[in-house]
Amino acid sequence: MTAGAIYALIALGYTLVYGVLRLINFAHSEIFMIGIFASLFAIDGLGIDVTDSPKTGLTLALTLGAVMVVAMLTSGFLAVAIERIAYRPLRRRGAPRLAALITAIGVSLFLQELFAARYGREFLGFPRVLEKRKLFTFQGADVRSDKVLVIVAAVVLALALERFVARSRLGRGIRATAQDAETAALMGVNIDRVVMLTFFLGGVLAGAAGTLYGVFFESARYDIGFLPGIKAFTAAVLGGIGNIRGALLGGILLGLLEKWGATVLGGEWTDVFAFTVLVVVLMFRPTGLLGESLGRSRA
């Protein structure tokens, strides 16, 4: 469920970009990875040390808030930069989607290896920020404070995004562009700006996911984004890619399915199980559970 909430946040980025550009932003997993690193550095920057005890109350809220903002902005601007450098030239040329996907893979590898070269190929540990306290037991499962926080934060952010897209003027621009970009331009929508905004929003959520992942799993590595990225994409497809609520539903559903799969088959088979779910869903319901379309996801 915790993993599912994080998948959901990352999935929103895939879904937004796919909804508007019909592009699988393969580099999104690295935007998430860099969100984790940004969180780690922000925690360092706040002078928090491995020897410090976990934060509580207001200190926790402030620390977490500050770290998350740093990560969100870092990832958000990184996503925009990637769009400008790697995708926009192709978009201008009207290049086929295959070309864009290959570019995305290139960006993804480049960023991974950049971080590998700079910060090494070993895991970096996080100081403990979030107390892992048992709150109560629900149907035999421990409900821990950190888990609750991750899930609540993810759901709140996802709902905020949905509200933004459904209600705001720019959100309307995003939906219009997703449904018919050329007509949207005729309505006065600046397509380049909408695309930029879409990448930014996706990046911001991936950054938030990075912070949550960081304080929950407490480690960072150059290739840490790969698996959650693929899983999040699976979640987006599961819920219906391009559909905001679908991403939320897909993420949480995938988290639960994985947990169940791990119990039945054993933990080492979790990933195989997740991929199998993806294949099966695509075979029987290629547009996902809630269907594709950014336009129809109204509040």
Binding site: R172, Q179, E182, L186, G295
Partner: peptide
């Protein structure tokens, strides 16, 4: 300068009001 395109270009997932409001997007 306003252009009603060939094939109408209605946003299928938006309601009639939302479509109309999109027309005033730039104003």
């Amino acid at each position: 300068l306003s252009h009603a395109p060939e094939g109408r270009g209605i946003f299928p997932g938006m309601t009639v009001v939302e479509n109309l409001e999109m027309g005033a997007y730039a104003r």
